[in-house]
């Protein structure tokens, strides 16, 4: 890193967290909390299930990634679905068996599975 301009170039490319697909369109981000707390609550199998299900259902406009701890231990595993231009949807107490439904309904058809979201708990 030689200058602030070089740094700014990377920052602008990142566009504050957006993921750009190969086709140039912004992807839906599926973010799994994978800090020690999330992992202990079973977030790894959830992460793997999402990656596999995206493949199984031939989803190309979404990508799964990891993040740290958001601070709500009792709600782990926590998965955020961040679609461009839409409100963030937070799924809590996620298990691998809930993933196919979340992918087919929310990611493919744009209808969040309300019963698994934070709304159902608070």
């Amino acid at each position: 890193m030689k200058s602030l301009a070089e740094l700014a170039a990377i920052r602008d490319k990142m566009k504050q967290g957006a993921a750009i697909g190969e086709d140039g369109n912004e992807k839906i981000r599926i973010v799994v909390g994978l800090a020690t707390c999330g992992v202990a609550a079973g977030a790894r199998p959830v992460f793997d299930a999402i990656a596999e299900e995206l493949k199984n259902q031939n989803v190309t406009n979404a990508a799964v990634s990891q993040t740290g701890c958001i601070g709500r231990c009792t709600l782990e595993p926590i998965v955020d679905v961040i679609a461009p231009g839409k409100d963030i949807v937070t799924y809590v107490h996620v298990t691998a068996d809930k993933i196919p439904q979340i992918i087919s309904s929310h990611i493919k058809e744009g209808v969040p599975v309300m019963e698994y979201t934070i709304c159902a708990y608070e």
């Binding site: 990142m14 973010v31 909390g33 990891q66 993040t67 740290g68 701890c69 601070g71 926590i78």
Partner: peptide, 11 residues
């Protein structure tokens, strides 16, 4: 914390 991927410096 809980926003970025900690393993991606670009984020």
């Amino acid at each position: 914390c809980g926003i970025i991927d900690p393993e991606q410096i670009d984020e």
